[in-house]
Amino acid sequence: MQVQAPTMIGRARAETDSVQGFDGLAPCWPGRRHVLDLDDFAPGEIVQVLGTAATMKEILQRPIKKVPTLRGKTIVTMFYESSTRTRVSFEVAAKVLGADAVNVAAPTSSATKGESLINTVQTLQAIGADIVVMRHPQSGAPWLVAPRVHAAVINAGDGWHAHPTQALLDVFTIHEHLGRVRGVRVTIVGDVLHSRVARSNIWALTKLGAEVTVCGPPTLLPRDWLLEPSRLPWAVRVCERLDEALDGADVVMALRLQRERQHGGLIPSVREYSHLYGLTTERLRQADSSAIVMHPGPMNEGVEIAPDVAHGPRSVIEAQVTNGVAVRMSLLYLLFGGEAALERSD
């Protein structure tokens, strides 16, 4: 296959050369109602999201960051778990595109038998939400909601399961810094077992041809990944030793370590974890790695990542946050059919 010319996105000025670097994966957007996980995304759809995100990033650099594309639409963010960057970046993305963004303060205490979730969703239905952006501590919660609403549902993180917009912004950032995704060696380090970021990244990265390694203590890796890697739906290398995992990596992504893992008996101490799996300048140097360093945030500096690495020259962590807005704009835009123009509203 040859590299496809960048496609037009409706009538939008979405021509961009940033879809290059995907080795012949043609962008496509057959239209979908919800974004729940990336496992059902065709590679071309991911390329489409990233290409459109590049256009959105250009809009964000305009002096007046506002287009009327989604004027009159209501986007509700419903977060059953605390979040700063994801929720705010969705709200900014919605507002830049001209939509009304409403945050529903989800009741976190009265969640008995899920009645609160379904009741809340029915309320949102009644007030006419066009898009529901939801985060929920239970894996699969968006699958409970999606069939019960007319609105589009975007999963902003469910339990340990999926965080598709995080993975898309991570892949966008990798592509932006390395110019390609295919063949890029990405090492994900940390609490993979409980990580929706790792799971969604694995889908996105492997669909685009990256080589993924996951690394962590055996108690924080899914047992079947460790023991039966040949039966996984994607080819991922699984390592218990960090030095081995860092060897030859182009990208190192550290995952947040929840301190309660120590009390749960999964690791002896945060101290020992940090000693074995914390990303330090010295460790990256020993591995002879020139990798860029990523983190989905929020960081425990000094635990999974040393402060000088987090803020050092290889860190692209701030770029991830910035790109998060562009990628979420891209998704919101594409979910509404990509028909409207991205003209200035000034």
């Binding site: 894996s139 340990w160 047992r223």
Partner: peptide, 15 residues
């Protein structure tokens, strides 16, 4: 069941 499906769906597995 703890296995390939629980690890994919992010559900806590009973081994």
């Amino acid at each position: 069941h703890e296995g390939s499906v629980s690890s994919r769906l992010g559900l806590r597995g009973a081994p």
